[in-house]
Amino acid sequence: MSEPIADAFQIWSYMSQQPLLWLCATLFAYWIGEILFVKAGRNPLVNAVLIAIVLLGVLLHITGTSYETYFDGAQFVHFMLGPVTVCLAIPLQANLLSIRKALIPIMAALVVGSVTSIVVALGVAKLLGADQVLLATIAPKSVTTPVAIGIAEGMGGDTALTAVLVIITGTIGAICVTPLLNLLRVKDWRARGFAVGVVSHGFGTARAFQVNDTAGVFASTGMGLNAVLTAFVAPLVLHLFF
């Protein structure tokens, strides 16, 4: 007969290596984040993703679990990024007409938003002493994660860090967009949604859908278009800086 404590330890060491535990933890962490978000009156500062990341980060740290072990479980959630991207076609198709009607403002805002994001990001980073690898890592940060990783890889950046910077950019955009555009007195939901989609990809899109459906549709359009544009523009701008 073994001691109960030794048993508990054995169960823990088994479970902590299994995908089930960290898959479960990921869903609960996000759930807690969403509950807090709703409790805070849907305040964008109380971001469910950010809360989930902090909770899980602390949990991994306390239990001494490696990110690789965590990801073995969380990959099932991560995998859903692909199908959910395909699903963006549904709101996009439903609003094809209003998007087509706004084609010229869309193209203008796409180029300005995308280029501003890359040039300001690389300019500021270089002024503050970033090297070329870090610049290549930062350049695609406004683009949805799978595309950003591909772009960073092509330019010799650190892809794991790029993924993190993409998340941070998304969070900053989702938190700042409402106060910022209120301050600038932009009332057109199409403009508000589109700008945040271009710069803050899926996070901005998720935030835009919370506020207004039109904004959400234009945000997903912006996210999709910027994924294409950044793939071409980011390497060009990086050349200008080196």
């Binding site: 706004a102 010229i104 403002p105 869309i106 203008a108 805002a109 796409l110 300005v112 938003g113 995308s114 501003t116 994001s117 890359i118 040039v119 300001v120 990001a121 690389l122 500021v124 980073a125 503050l128 002493g129 970033a130 870090l134 930062i138 940060k141 406004s142 910077l165 941070i168 950019t169 900053i172 955009g173 700042c176 967009v177 910022l180 555009l181 600038l184 932009v186 057109d188 199409r190 403009a191 508000r192 589109f194 700008a195 945040v196 271009v198 710069v199 803050s200 912006g222």
Partner: peptide, 24 residues
């Protein structure tokens, strides 16, 4: 470098992007 770069570029690009949309 990372925080200043991400914060300033995100604010500038959302602001300019939205204003461009409205103007055009």
């Amino acid at each position: 470098a990372i925080s200043a770069s991400l914060f300033l570029s995100t604010i500038a690009a959302i602001g300019l992007g939205a204003l461009t949309f409205v103007w055009v």
